[in-house]
């Protein structure tokens, strides 16, 4: 049911395992309770049991202890969640991720994402690796990151609340005007994924769609070189390769018109 997990995504693995543990837990408990419930309805129907019992059996009166079991069960299900939350949200500051990337010999990329109605802008630091300088580079509705890298995404929004959602990486966090929030994920192999907005942001909420392209290391370096030469970073071919049904292409190309060599002024204009 869930879209296939992106290969090797660490956050995705944590989230998926958390979901699986809780889901299996509730399915087991749910099925058990339904079996007991239906059995009780059949066993204690009026035709079979014309008179009700006034008192419950003694062992049933101790049933309040079952609630302690419920609490333990809940906390057991929660424990992996807490661990995963710690890994995803609390532990993972920039230094930690950078160190991790160096240990694994993986890349480390930082991207600022700005959501605005109905559009995602992705801002890359230039050669100086800092944001807010003149060599920053911005793309619209397409996010390009290299394979085998840790990607740290700083989120904010220009106008209203948005939520940055990459289903295949199990990444989701709100982009809030004036506030910076952060998600991270790890890429392994080249591929193309979809980015959605998961927080109601206006009429075209459903249309606030971007593409995440994980490219090979060579392609990434070539793209970085091209963009620092001022050449538009994205050729439309890369997008059509992503394509699909007619309806989809239409919807995407409409938002594509913002992208290509879109200027920051255009993005930030009100």
């Amino acid at each position: 049911m869930r879209p296939d997990l992106a290969e090797g995504s660490e956050v995705g693995w944590l989230v998926d395992t958390a979901i699986d543990i809780v889901t299996i837990g509730i399915i087991v408990v749910g099925v058990l309770s339904f079996i007991i419930f239906i059995y009780a309805l059949i066993r204690y129907r009026r035709t079979r049991q014309p008179f009700a019992l006034r008192e419950a059996p003694v062992w049933l009166r101790r049933i309040v202890y079952l609630d302690i079991a419920v609490l333990l069960f809940d906390l057991t299900l929660l424990s992996f969640n807490l661990y995963a939350w710690h890994e995803i949200m609390i532990d993972a500051d920039d230094q930690y991720l950078l160190r991790k990337a160096q240990e694994e010999g993986a890349g480390f990329v930082r991207v600022q994402v700005v959501g605005r109605q109905f559009f995602w802008a992705f801002i890359y630091p230039g050669a100086d690796q800092t944001f807010g300088t003149t060599d920053d580079y911005t793309t619209g509705n397409i996010m390009i990151v290299p394979e085998n890298s840790y990607v740290v995404v700083d989120l904010t929004a220009k106008d209203v609340l948005h939520s940055f959602f990459i289903p295949e990486f199990r990444v989701k966090y709100d982009a809030i005007p004036g506030q910076r929030t952060r998600v991270w994920f790890k890429t392994t192999e080249p591929g193309t994924y979809e980015i959605a907005c998961a927080e109601l942001c206006g009429d075209k909420h459903y249309d606030m769609r971007a593409v995440l392209r994980v490219v090979s290391q060579e392609e990434w370096e070539a793209w970085v070189a091209r963009r620092s030469n001022g050449v538009p970073g994205i050729v439309s071919g890369t997008l059509h390769a992503f394509g699909g049904g007619e309806h989809r292409q239409k919807s995407f190309s409409s938002s594509l018109s913002h992208s290509g060599s879109v200027s920051v002024q255009e993005l930030s204009a009100n």
Binding site: V15, A18, L78
Partner: peptide, 24 residues
Amino acid sequence: AMFIIGGLTGLPLGALTSDIYFHD
């Protein structure tokens, strides 16, 4: 019966990591 389902399925939403994926 429906409330059993409703109550149990609240757990993945109250559990914070699985809620990342299920939120909204």
